[in-house]
Each structure stands twice: as structure tokens, then as C-alpha cells.
Amino acid sequence: MSDESDFGVASGTQTVRFERLLPGPIERVWRYLVESDKRGQWLASGDDVPAQVGGEFQMFFHHGNLSPEKTPTPERFKKYEDGVSSMHRVTRYEPPHTLGFTWSDGADGGRSDVLIELAALGDKVRFVLTHRKLSGRHAQVNVSGGWHTHLAVLVERLNGRVPVSFWTLFEGVEEQYERCYPKG
């Protein structure tokens, strides 16, 4: 189970915010956001993030490749077992402090927005991720479980550790968000 302080904070049914204190320096953390090979260790590979607002980039999510530990993919995610791609557009690009981009909000083709803000705090980096314009509570719970788990993998990677399987970390997280987020 996760530490309560790691949980995202809901605002209404369309926004969630995560905060972490990561090992720095800030330029290193920035590279884990924008460089495909580093981002692929915790979130999704694909294209490097273009260095300009309006630039488009692809992310390729393959949760089974985020750790050498292999565990079965949960049944409801089996259709993504071999990976899934999505397109994103840069909405803010202010290295090494702010990265914003669009996010697909599910099969209905809706778009939401992700904003990641970094601030150097000595040898640490304050990482704040805000995901806005979600289509409702279901999307909020869904993306919260995903971000929560991906950020746990990022913390492990930045601390020089090999994470356990994404699916092991993910187990039960969405259910916790389902219980703790306000209904309606």
C-alpha cells in the first residue's frame, strides 16, 4: 500500500494534483520528462518532447517494460499488454521548470491537460503535476491511479533503484482513489 502523503489531491471532478520531493539536480529531473529514453524508464518512451509550444510528440506506453520484474497484466488492461501509443501537444515549455502538454482522456477522444512544475530546493527538486480538464470522476480516478504508480516508478529510478513491476505497484491504488475522492 502507498503512503497517504503520496496520494493525489482532487479538486472537483476534473482536476488532480500530485507533489513529490525528488533527488536533483533539477536538470536531471527535466531530462526524465523530455528525453524519450529516460521518460521510457518510468512513464512512456516514444519521441523526445519538442522544445517549442505547439510541437507534437508521441508516447508509447508499455507498462510491462518499466521493470525487469514481470507480473501478469490485469485482465482489464490485457488489450494494452503489447503497448499503446498516444499523441500529445506541448502547451508550455520553460526548461528546466515547466512542461505542459495535452493528454488523451480516453476512448471518447476528449483532451485534458497536464502541467508539470519543477523547483530546485537545495539538492532536491519539488515536482508538482496537475492534470486538468478531466471528463469527470471516472477519468479522475483512472488517471490518478496511473500517475500515482508512474510517479512511484520515477522515484525509484531517480534514487538509483530498480522498481518492482508496474502492475505490482498499481494493485489496489485505483480502489483507494475510488474510496477517497468525493463522489459527484
Score class of each variant (00 low, 15 high):
W147G: 01
K70A: 12
F166K: 09
S2F: 12
L169S: 07
G146N: 09
E174V: 00
K70V: 07
V125H: 04
Q140K: 08
L151D: 01
E69L: 06
E75L: 07
V9R: 13
R111L: 13
G110H: 12
G145C: 07
D37N: 14
S67K: 06
K70L: 09
C180W: 00
G172E: 02
G184E: 11
V84N: 10
L22S: 08
E156R: 12
R161C: 03
T73R: 03
V29H: 06
N65L: 14
G122S: 10
A107T: 09
F77C: 10
L66N: 02
R76H: 15
W42D: 07
K38R: 14
V90R: 08
R89C: 13
W103F: 14
H148K: 05
M1A: 14
G40R: 01
Y32D: 04
P72K: 12
S144Y: 03
G109E: 06
A152C: 11
A107V: 12
Y32W: 15
M1Y: 09
V162T: 15
E171L: 04
R39C: 03
E171Q: 15
G106N: 10
P25C: 05
G184H: 14
L151W: 06
A119W: 01
S67G: 08
F57Y: 13
V143A: 02
Y177D: 01
A139N: 14
G40T: 03
G184R: 15
D82N: 14
R39V: 02
E4Q: 07
V34D: 02
V141R: 00
P72R: 04
R111M: 08
R179H: 11
S2T: 14
P95G: 04
V49R: 01
S5Q: 12
F57Q: 05
G100D: 05
R179E: 12
